[in-house]
């Protein structure tokens, strides 16, 4: 499996710093996903080998964590929190607007492969609700009106 030099370095480091090698598993999976887009069988085999685990053990872990996926998603994953603080401040409308603007349903990917939308649990931005996360970027106090500019800021990939 070939990764970017940066990621390869990170992996080299991660497998050495912990008292037990295996501790590197979750970070490695997440960083690999950031680069590859999702966790492919190849990535599973590779990381299993680096950490001396069975692919089964690695899959057991992947399937536990919500951020880790084994299927492709949009280049930008729009994650709309609808938990209580956001719910009572209008998150459902924000979610609907995102879906409608992008013309996709929950977990669907836009035809150009750029976006997918997900309803997510609390992302720790409750005092600035409703909150949306696009990949790792936080967007606070989002309203249906602000959805367009938020999405546009990712169109054209420039700021990716």
């Amino acid at each position: 499996m070939r990764y970017s030099p940066e990621l390869e370095d990170r992996f080299q480091r991660l497998v050495t710093i912990y008292p037990w090698r295996r501790s590197a598993l979750v970070p490695m999976l997440l960083y690999a996903q950031d680069e590859v887009g999702y966790i492919t069988d190849e990535v599973v085999e590779d990381i299993a080998e680096r950490l001396e685990l069975t692919p089964l053990e690695v899959r057991n872990v992947i399937s536990y964590y919500s951020l880790l996926r084994t299927r492709p998603a949009g280049k930008y994953v729009v994650q709309v929190c609808t938990n209580i603080s956001c719910l009572v401040t209008g998150a459902e409308d924000v979610l609907e607007t995102c879906k409608e603007r992008l013309g996709v349903e929950e977990k669907e990917v836009t035809s150009d492969g750029k976006f997918s939308v997900e309803e997510v649990e609390c992302i720790g931005a409750c005092s600035w609700a409703p909150a949306v996360q696009v990949n790792y970027d936080f967007h606070l106090n989002v309203t249906p009106e602000k959805v367009d500019s938020m999405l546009n800021s990712y169109r054209g990939g420039a700021k990716a």
């Binding site: 295996r22 501790s23 979750v26 970070p27 997440l30 057991n60 872990v61 951020l67 880790l68």
Partner: peptide
């Protein structure tokens, strides 16, 4: 260390499991 999306992992013993590279 970074987690990967799991509330239960905030529970102290699940947190240790997660940090050890296991299911939370």
């Amino acid at each position: 260390q970074t987690g990967a999306g799991a509330y239960e992992v905030g529970e102290e013993s699940a947190l240790m499991e997660s940090l050890e590279g296991k299911r939370g």
